[in-house]
């Protein structure tokens, strides 16, 4: 593992994170937004594992990454169910059409 230190991995994490945030901000498709969330969580996970290997976090980083993966799955399931329920009522998954509640 010569050459690439922690900075390379943290860079990847940062790119994933920012891509995810931009994805969440720009996508009008409900499921697209969820994909942005997955990217963000993944960026954090890269950080955790990188810190576990190069930093001082040790095994705790890997455990954290495991829990994040599990929580992401749970969150995705609920979010998807909500998107489906929205679709059933509105026949679209365009989040910009969610504009009936305002004031």
């Amino acid at each position: 593992m010569e050459g690439v230190g922690i900075n390379g991995y943290l860079g990847v994490g940062a790119v994933l994170f920012v891509c995810g945030v931009v994805c969440m901000a720009t996508k009008r498709n409900g499921i697209g937004v969820l994909m942005g969330v997955e990217l963000v969580l993944n960026g954090a996970n890269v950080n955790f594992v990188a810190f576990s290997r190069f930093g001082h976090l040790g095994l705790d980083g890997q455990v954290a990454a495991l829990f994040v993966i599990v929580m992401a799955a749970a969150e995705a399931a609920v979010a998807l169910a909500i998107v489906l329920s929205f679709y059933n009522n509105h026949l679209t998954v365009d989040v910009d059409r969610a504009d009936e509640l305002r004031g």
Binding site: V37, N47, D60, A98
Partner: peptide, 27 residues
């Protein structure tokens, strides 16, 4: 359902940002 959609979208997003912060802090 619209309320839930808005809640989950914002909630999931901010939870992700928070997690990134946690990873930096822990690291």
């Amino acid at each position: 359902s619209e309320a839930a959609l808005k809640y989950v979208v914002y909630g999931a997003g901010t939870a992700g940002v928070m997690l990134y912060g946690i990873s930096l802090l822990a690291g």
